[in-house]
């Protein structure tokens, strides 16, 4: 890549990439078997509340807020939210076995606030909603990288 080309490319990204991002991967354990409907209700509430919290903290546009939950049986539940006034897209393949252990990935991208604020809004909501559903959890990876997140916007 030529120097001029590279500079333009970086400039373009800086101009357009005013997005705050946060993603997290965790294992969850409901205190008792969580059925298909409860799992969906839980994921809906979690994504809506994360989004509300981001908007409350200054975001002006949802990029996407999405999650993918895989049960110990291999069945899955996907949820994606792009606007608080637009119904969430849900793909629920959890069957009658429900889940007692799940692999949960959450991905949040919004416009108008930077990565640290998105992390704060997401974690605050996770720490509130999961205990409210009697779900224990262990964070496997938190993909927030402070230096990278901030340097990108300098």
């Amino acid at each position: 890549m030529k120097e001029m080309d590279e500079k333009l490319h970086i400039d373009m990204h800086r101009m357009v990439d005013e997005l705050g991002k946060f993603s997290i991967h965790m294992t969850i354990w409901p205190d008792k078997m969580m059925d298909r409907e409860s799992a969906e209700r839980f994921l809906r509430e979690l994504l809506i509340d994360i989004t509300k919290e981001c908007m409350h903290d200054g975001a002006d546009l949802v990029g996407h807020v999405k999650a993918f939950l895989i049960s110990e049986h291999g069945t899955s539940l996907g949820a994606s939210l792009v606007h608080l006034d637009i119904p969430m897209t849900i793909n629920n393949a959890i069957d009658q076995r429900g889940l007692t252990e799940g692999d949960l990935t959450i991905h949040v991208i919004v416009h108008g606030i930077w990565d640290p604020d998105v992390k704060h809004a997401s974690m605050e909501t996770i720490e509130r909603i999961l205990p409210a559903y009697n779900i224990k959890y262990k964070i496997l990876q938190d993909y927030y990288e402070k230096e990278k997140g901030e340097s990108h916007h300098k």
């Binding site: 997005l19 946060f22 899955s76 996907g78 793909n91 393949a93 959450i106 991905h107 993909y143």
Partner: peptide
């Protein structure tokens, strides 16, 4: 490809 360091979409597509 996603801008974050984790990707939800690949799992969804593979399902």
């Amino acid at each position: 490809n996603d801008v974050g360091d984790i990707n939800v979409d690949a799992k969804f597509i593979e399902s």
